[in-house]
Design a protein around this nucleic acid. Structure first.
Lengths: 226, 226
DNA sequence: CTTGACACAGAACGGATGTTCGTGTATTAT
DNA sequence: ATAATACACGAACATCCGTTCTGTGTCAAG
């Protein structure tokens, strides 16, 4: 009803690609005429026509009446990164820090953080309130996670089968990272390392899911000795 | 002989600061007139005058006759993140891709890449020609690295004790990631997982170090089942 | 066939923008 | 003092560039 082909047309893609390329090459956006020349469009009005569409689709932003007033939005293409704060440590014997929903920790400029290309993350996590924790100790070695690793988490209180989650086990009084599976009379928590045996939790035992593991980052330290 | 005060004048600093601020706010550089308005300079020619100086000092680059053709150089450029290209896969039975020194793979816009906060990397790796590989298979599970992980490498042909390196073992015809130790009559390659036993290479056996491991990134996939 | 939405081209208008020139005022060297 | 230089202002241009208007051709619906 609004668009002949719902997807982006050939020229839309060309313009988007050129916008990105040009902005990377020079530091400033191209003019309408330049866009036209490099995409085979001979009329400025047609370029304007497509830019309007792209803006309506939310793919770019335009500052009207301003030369080179075009910037591409979260088009997820290269260069787009996501900032994820490192909230604190995670250790076997301690509860893990969780983000307080009311506090906008994202605005904390001083906090340590990592930046990751959006293309590395699954689509559904793109806008999520991700946070990161730094692993202390070798207690999660059976999850193939070692001391110093950084785990990127997504807030969650429940999980689906096959997801790796951070759980607090009151039974053993510890935090652990395991693959989560629901079974007929309880839960199965399976280590990432297939050589390790899974543990079972019966249905009436307490089990607190703290979040889902989205990513693990290991940073190799330089050896101390010179 | 050429300049009254060799350092940057008040207006130079103001212009530089505004350039950076404006570029961050919008995605494009300001016009000469805008620079003037925000730095208390009432004439476009004076702004032009200072821009010429800044260009001669090598602090900015100008594209003459092009609107908003101002970009600042090494100053605040790059930001606090680093872009690392993913060159290809790494598997036990195959040689690993290594960057060709002559080829500037950094200019490859199409290549997949990850961005990482500089603060996460050791200082000495900041300017290094880092590259990344995607692990295929579970053959490096004894290095606590699993299928799908991404390893960030630094080119190297030798290593110091305690560093994790990627080595090609002609003896076993495979690539592996191990901690490297030189011993009196050969080398000891120790898995990251302390439960696994190290392997020894005698001094006359061939051993090719392909690079040092700087970082490991594990991205958790969503389970296939819905 | 007619109608209308859509894609496109070309030209013209007017404001935006970089450049140049004439002028003025301190400061410094000769 | 005089000249040279750095710094500054404002106006005049000549483009650059976004916008808008007119016109053409296509294609599917009525």
């Amino acid at each position: 009803m609004s668009r002949k082909r719902k997807g982006l047309g050939e020229r839309h893609k060309k313009i988007l690609a050129f916008l990105e390329e040009y902005q990377a090459e020079n530091q400033y956006p191209p003019t309408i005429r330049e866009i036209g020349e490099h995409t085979g469009i001979t009329s400025t009005s047609v370029v304007n026509y497509y830019l309007d569409q792209l803006e309506r689709m939310g793919l770019i932003e335009r500052d009207r009446r301003i030369s080179r007033g075009v910037r591409l939005k979260n088009a997820a293409r290269g260069g787009n990164t996501m900032r994820i704060p490192i909230l604190g440590p995670i250790a076997a014997g301690e509860p893990i820090p969780v983000p307080e929903p009311g506090v906008s920790y994202l605005t904390d400029e001083e906090a340590d953080a990592i930046e990751i290309a959006r293309s590395l993350l699954p689509e559904r996590e793109q806008g999520a309130d991700l946070y990161a924790l730094e692993v202390r100790g070798d207690s999660m070695i059976d999850a193939m996670i070692s001391d110093g690793d950084i785990v990127v988490m997504k807030p969650a209180i429940e999980a689906r089968n096959g997801e790796m989650v951070a759980v607090w086990l009151p039974r053993d009084n510890e935090t652990t990272l395991k693959y989560f599976y629901k079974e007929k009379d309880g839960y199965r928590l399976e280590p990432a390392n297939p050589m390790m045996k899974p543990i079972f939790i019966s249905k009436d035992e307490p089990l607190e899911i703290k979040g889902k593991v989205v990513m693990v980052i290991r940073k190799m330290e330089e050896p101390l000795a010179a």
